[in-house]
């Protein structure tokens, strides 16, 4: 049974990159380009893991995470935040708002799928190298 990944990302190129890698890695990918849609889709079709960009239009990533955590059906799903290197506080903030871990942009295409799998298999908050 393929694991389902909910990908909430507004940049089409980034989305394509991650989607391609994930599908090649054996995942089923659902996508939304904003937080509202993302939450709706999650409720519609409960995913196994949620991958979301911090910088989203409208409702930002942190709010989405809080929403997800406060929705009982979705509260237990592991969330991985996609952060940016320069924003030092982002990582901590992501973790505070309910993320289980984070991946930094630009992603390493060779390691990406492995990282997602690691998150699925454990509830580590650290990014496995």
């Amino acid at each position: 049974m393929r694991k389902r990944v909910l990908l909430i990302e507004d940049n089409p190129e980034n989305f394509f990159l991650m989607q391609y890698l994930l599908e090649k890695g054996g995942f089923q990918v659902m996508g939304a380009d904003n937080g509202w849609l993302g939450i709706e889709m999650a409720l519609f079709n409960i995913p196994d893991i949620i991958l979301l960009d911090i910088q989203l239009p409208g409702m930002d990533g942190y709010s989405v995470m809080r929403r997800l955590r406060s929705t009982p059906e979705l509260a237990k799903i592991p969330i991985v935040a996609v952060t940016s290197y320069a924003m030092a506080g982002n990582r901590e903030l992501a973790l505070q708002n309910g993320a289980n871990g984070y991946i930094e942009k630009p992603i390493d295409p060779d390691a990406f799928t492995g990282q997602i799998e690691a998150f699925l298999n454990s509830s580590n908050t650290e990014v496995p190298k």
Binding site: L17, P106, D108, P109
Partner: peptide, 11 residues
Amino acid sequence: RTPLNSVIGFT
């Protein structure tokens, strides 16, 4: 970073 993401990723 965003464009680099694509470059590095797709290469």
